[in-house]
Design a protein around this nucleic acid. Structure first.
Lengths: 208, 208
DNA sequence: TGGTCTCTCAGCCTTTTGGCTGATGCTGCT
DNA sequence: AGCAGCATCAGCCAAAAGGCTGAGAGACCA
């Protein structure tokens, strides 16, 4: 029998070849293709139907990882999606899980951890790196302070320096709605102004 | 004869093995060791005296890349140091060059670019990715946009999320003066609002 | 000595932001 | 059916931020 078919998605060539080399040491893994962008990933999943997609969240230009996960889910594909990212910000984790990711690994994870996560993913198990799990755990203990996906999205745009009007235009909602979301975000972050929210987001949530 | 001896320094295992695999395709490269931290790199350079050190700037805990470069330089070693980083922030570039890096590559660079940079480095040539070179060039062309010490101080406090009043109290100046400084900062950074200034400061100047 | 830069401050006016209250439609859970 | 959470919107008011002009004091340099 052939092993677990894997598609790698990462815009950095060195990461792709590193991962390929790493997975190549295991007899039950079969890296069938590599994609450098979300768009490429769509095509390859369509044609190869890999059992697992290992995907970076940060993708230079075009479609980002979250968007790619969403689209793969919408196409009703059966493959498990594993996020393989450098950062463990709350927002990224929430959005990735929300989009339909099966697991969340950090790039400094040990090889065994990566192998286990992939094997678990095909069996429907959720595996994540310890820091990621810890963050999720914290969020469960403090549900009042967890940003909703929409709020996280807004906060992310906020850190780009947009005004309420620009935020509204970017998200196709009214300025009033933007203000409502912001008020909720401030309350959850425990701040009073947008600048403090940005400072908190960048330092605490790891956004940039 | 043996080829160009290379030491890889990166806290991510996949990046190290990817780079090793990549450099292994070239007959004239010889990756003699890999280090996962700045401290490890010190030791290995001491014992192996590689011709080139390829180093990531962001290193999880302990010594960061910049610090490692500085210390290697201070020990009067002959090896060329190449930065291999994900980001191209002005601050990172300036600090790396200042610390004594021979070149600056981005992680999405093409293999040929990486090979050429390493071969160039041993011959004393400076090689950097196009976006990096472009940023350095821009800085040379526009020395007028440098913040004054006071402005930089204000900008730094701004990224902590303070209001104009708080800034004034912290710096023992009136709110009017704060607004004047801010106006100058906005002009120099090419932004219109404080939130955009914070975003720019964090991404371009590397403040955090 | 005169010019330039930096830091300091003021007043006036417009735009933006934030606080508050209340309301609607949708979804998911019970 | 009912309730809770989420996302959407409106209006009103106060506070904060930003644009503009002008100006004085001290430092540095030609």
């Amino acid at each position: 029998m052939t092993g677990i078919t894997v598609l790698l998605v990462d815009d950095h060539l060195v990461v792709r070849s590193g991962l390929t080399a790493l997975l190549g040491t295991q007899p039950d893994f079969d890296v069938v293709a590599e994609a450098a962008s979300g768009e490429e990933a769509m095509d390859l999943v369509e044609h190869l139907s890999p059992a697992v997609v290992v995907m970076d969240l940060a993708m230079g230009a075009g479609m980002d990882g979250i968007e790619a996960i969403k689209q793969l889910r919408q196409r009703n594909r059966r493959q498990a999606i594993l996020v393989f990212s450098t950062y463990d910000s709350d927002a990224d984790i929430v959005r990735a899980v929300d989009a339909g990711a099966m697991g969340y690994l950090l790039k400094d994870a040990a090889p065994d951890e990566i192998f286990a996560a992939i094997r678990g993913a095909v069996q429907g198990k959720s595996v994540m790196s310890a820091p990621v799990a810890s963050r999720l755990f914290q969020q469960l203990r403090n549900p009042a302070e967890v940003l909703t996906p929409r709020e996280a999205e807004l906060l992310s745009l906020l850190t780009e320096g947009l005004s309420n009007r620009q935020l509204g235009q970017r998200l196709f909602i009214s300025e009033a709605t933007v203000k409502t979301h912001l008020a909720h975000i401030y309350a959850k972050l425990g701040v009073e102004t947008r600048t403090a929210a940005i400072a908190t987001a960048i330092r605490r949530e790891g956004m940039r």
